[in-house]
């Protein structure tokens, strides 16, 4: 018990919170970009433009089938070779965005596929262009149905930020490791804090997804 009281000192808690903030920051920015890029890729794969869609599809498959850890290494250590010097936060965001965009692209593609074909035909026969119909009719319906899988992918993203400890992103898990690394008695309190904090953030996301899902459908 005494260990818990000592471990949750103001100093340690504020250090943990600084880590949590980086986790949130990296997650929010990565979700934002991967949602946009994932949608573009998902549509690109769905529309079946000769060669182009096949190539996009292959690249998506490559990325989806690699461990995120590997993509993190590549981004941090390989990008400077083409003249981009990145500090660890942007490097982590880029790696997360690349990986999660590919994961989201698959969800979005199958979401679009689930919208009845008649919808597109009806929109086209009412004089809309293909892209107008896609943006105004198909995608909004697809997103409505995709909320649960999309949000569960976002939750994965928040959890996956912990893997960036391997390139020393100063996020929640790394900060907890530093604290218990300096005092072994704090090990259990730190793991308890980690489980609780990740749970709160992700459970809030999942509750929000249920609420939105119910409102829309």
């Amino acid at each position: 018990m005494q260990n818990f009281i000592n471990a949750y000192s103001a100093v340690n808690l504020s250090y943990l919170m600084r880590g949590l903030w980086v986790t949130v920051e990296v997650s929010v920015v990565s979700i934002f970009f991967s949602f946009i890029i994932g949608t573009l890729l998902g549509v690109a794969r769905y529309v079946k433009i000769k060669y182009f869609s096949a190539i996009v599809g292959f690249i998506i498959d490559l990325i989806r089938n690699l461990p995120l850890l590997l993509i993190l290494f590549f981004t941090y250590f390989a990008l400077p070779n083409i003249g981009i010097r990145l500090s660890v936060i942007p490097a982590s965001i880029i790696a997360m965005t690349v990986f999660e965009s590919a994961m989201l692209a698959e969800i979005i593609r199958s979401g679009i596929g689930a919208v009845p074909i008649g919808q597109m035909e009806a929109a086209r026969s009412n004089g809309m262009t293909y892209s107008q119909a896609m943006i105004q009719i198909i995608l909004p319906q697809a997103f409505k149905k995709m909320i649960p899988p999309l949000v569960s992918q976002f939750i994965s993203l928040v959890k996956d930020t912990s893997l960036a400890t391997i390139i020393l992103l100063p996020e929640l898990t790394q900060h907890a490791q530093i604290i218990y690394g300096q005092n072994v008695n704090y090990t259990i309190p730190m793991f308890a804090a980690l489980a609780l904090l990740y749970f709160i953030v992700n459970y809030a996301l999942s509750v929000a997804s249920h609420v939105i899902d119910r409102r829309l459908n």
């Binding site: 939750i155 912990s162 898990t173 218990y180 793991f191 749970f199």
Partner: peptide
């Protein structure tokens, strides 16, 4: 489902 794999694994390795 809501906590990272790394946290679960490290807990088993360390605790």
């Amino acid at each position: 489902r809501n906590i990272p794999l790394l946290v679960i694994t490290m807990a088993f390795y360390v605790i």
